[in-house]
Nucleic acid binder design. Sequence first.
DNA 1: AGGTGTATGTCGCAT
DNA 2: ATGCGACGTACACCT
Lengths: 219, 219
Amino acid sequence: MRLVVAECTVTYEGRLTSRLGRAKRLLMIKADGCVAIHADGGAYKPLNWMNAPNILIEDDTSWKVSNQKGEVIVIDLHSVESDTTVDLGIDPGLQKDGVESHLQELLAEQPNVIEEGLQLIRREYPTEIGPVDLLCRDAAGNTVAVEIKRRGEIDGVEQLTRYLQFLNGQPDLAPVRGVFAAQLIKPQAKVLAGSREIDCVEVDYDVLCGAERPQQILF
Amino acid sequence: MRLVVAECTVTYEGRLTSRLGRAKRLLMIKADGCVAIHADGGAYKPLNWMNAPNILIEDDTSWKVSNQKGEVIVIDLHSVESDTTVDLGIDPGLQKDGVESHLQELLAEQPNVIEEGLQLIRREYPTEIGPVDLLCRDAAGNTVAVEIKRRGEIDGVEQLTRYLQFLNGQPDLAPVRGVFAAQLIKPQAKVLAGSREIDCVEVDYDVLCGAERPQQILF
DNA sequence: AGGTGTATGTCGCAT
DNA sequence: ATGCGACGTACACCT
């Protein structure tokens, strides 16, 4: 990784056009070739950037970074305060826990956690308007579409509503009812779901992890 | 801005849980207090971060960054290779030249590009649930709500649907039909729009710019 | 390569 | 604060 602190002006032309007036900034060039221009604020997001793959052409007073899509950043350097390079090596990578896909896996294994007697028909059931997280059959033999979110908000209810609309247009599946499952469901989402006769279920992620094989725990 | 290069391990607990195994990384602390942990790849996004406002507690071997929402990053430092601070001053900021609003302006001037005989009633027509991009009257005298997007996706159709629902509840306007206009409309959005009897129109931004005053070009 | 859904999305603006 | 819409969204995953 190369870190340059310099007075510079920057222009970007691509998905939009932008300009940065003259100021001292940090230029970060990573081993993968991506370039980021950081100010001393504005959270972790750089002011401008160009992700790999790109081409960096460097001359005495300016850098030109361009990619295949026709995006270009031009960095004019007025004065360079420092220019250092560190070898960080390859990172072992970030281990994430608790994302939606994991929650979906756990609930696919344990649909009865969502509702007594629920059985999985298919995970990621494909439709023209996108995949339904879980398609299930309930104790009474009716089809149930389950939408899973980490945090249940209005968007998720809208999404599930679309699926239900679509699925109920399929004579071999209808009638299909909906269940909205999330670790936490916001009040507004609950209200909206309620008004559409969609059940809401809040699931405890830790309990779900612990209860992954309840038989083995019980005996 | 403070830049530290160090061997470290990191854990984050908050919206999810994550771990970073021991490796050399760049720790960036900006003047606003935000902290970012960068590896030498993965575009401009840090592996972990904590935006301001937060509290950084530093001792000999570890840093603890936490915020009011209960998110916590713990950085264990095994060895520090460098620790430098630069004063970048306040950035003059990024000047953006947007495309979205411009598209709306152009279509407001040229509603007939959307549909033959369409006339503008009002741009940014206010409703309780947000402004309708363009409210128009068609050749037959019916009211038309136009939603404009750079890229037309399902969200945009949902948004327009909400507006139509609202507008059709106004006796002086109803019936109102919808037109979804974008530079590019995704297949799923087209399907959803079709099922709701919303017309889709793809507009060419460059042609629109060129056709801004068609009379002057024709004569 | 293109399409779709997720994200610790972030960011800004209005209520 | 919360809701809502835009973003150069980025990114993984699938066809």
